[in-house]
Design a protein around this nucleic acid. Sequence first.
DNA 1: GCTTGACCTGGAGTGCACTCCAGGGGGTAA
DNA 2: TTACCCCCTGGAGTGCACTCCAGGTCAAGC
Lengths: 126, 126
Amino acid sequence: MKIGDLARATGLTVDTLRYYEDIGLLPPSQRDRSGHRIYGAESLRWLEFVGRLKATGMGIADMVRYAQLRAKGPSTNGERRRLMEAHRAKVALKIAELSENLGKLDEKIAWYRAEESATDIAEAAE
Amino acid sequence: MKIGDLARATGLTVDTLRYYEDIGLLPPSQRDRSGHRIYGAESLRWLEFVGRLKATGMGIADMVRYAQLRAKGPSTNGERRRLMEAHRAKVALKIAELSENLGKLDEKIAWYRAEESATDIAEAAE
DNA sequence: GCTTGACCTGGAGTGCACTCCAGGGGGTAA
DNA sequence: TTACCCCCTGGAGTGCACTCCAGGTCAAGC
């Protein structure tokens, strides 16, 4: 799989993939004899995982830290688990915050609806 | 209330408040005779609302749009309600996405725990 | 009367996460 | 063989949301 294929498969751009490699978020890939990057299925799986971390609000620096531990092998499992647990707690908090704010938004929308009804009635009475 | 008081009350910085005024997110305030900004309780309430929009991922440009409609008065109620409804839908989607990813994180954590248990057992057998 | 602290303005600088560009090479299809 | 598309590198540029700074005014406390 060449970089363009991986880009299509992940929804990222070719530029983003090269950027991820630069900063150490994507391990340096194999190259074919003309210097083009070649990727396997494991790159796709890793980027899907990275996408989930990103979707849950993890910053690049933290993801790179995780990637570095992963590159060191199974001896870092404990530390990686602790990172995931800490991140899980943040995500749970974020969900709680969003849910609370969703309630406030609903109140606001209900208020607007009530205002509009009041206006409609006032207009109907004219 | 002076700008420093409002900053303390909202948790924003003085710089951020002046920036919000510059871009039209905070209506221009009254000034005292030496040119210092003076705010009332309604500024605090507005900024709390803005904070909720921000916490739910609304960008500055959209918040400014909403602020402009608000400044135009009740005739824009319908449009403001529609903006809130559109935003509510995005927030609900975001919550669903986060919840799904929380599940995946839990699976990952469970996997690490299982690996660690396996390692413990192997070590105990040595 | 002088220092201190909060405030003012306009503009430059920061951090993040990309995104784009110039200048060049390689493989294949008409 | 020429046109086209994808790939390469190093480096500059972008958009967002602030954040900081220089140089200055003003009111209050010691």
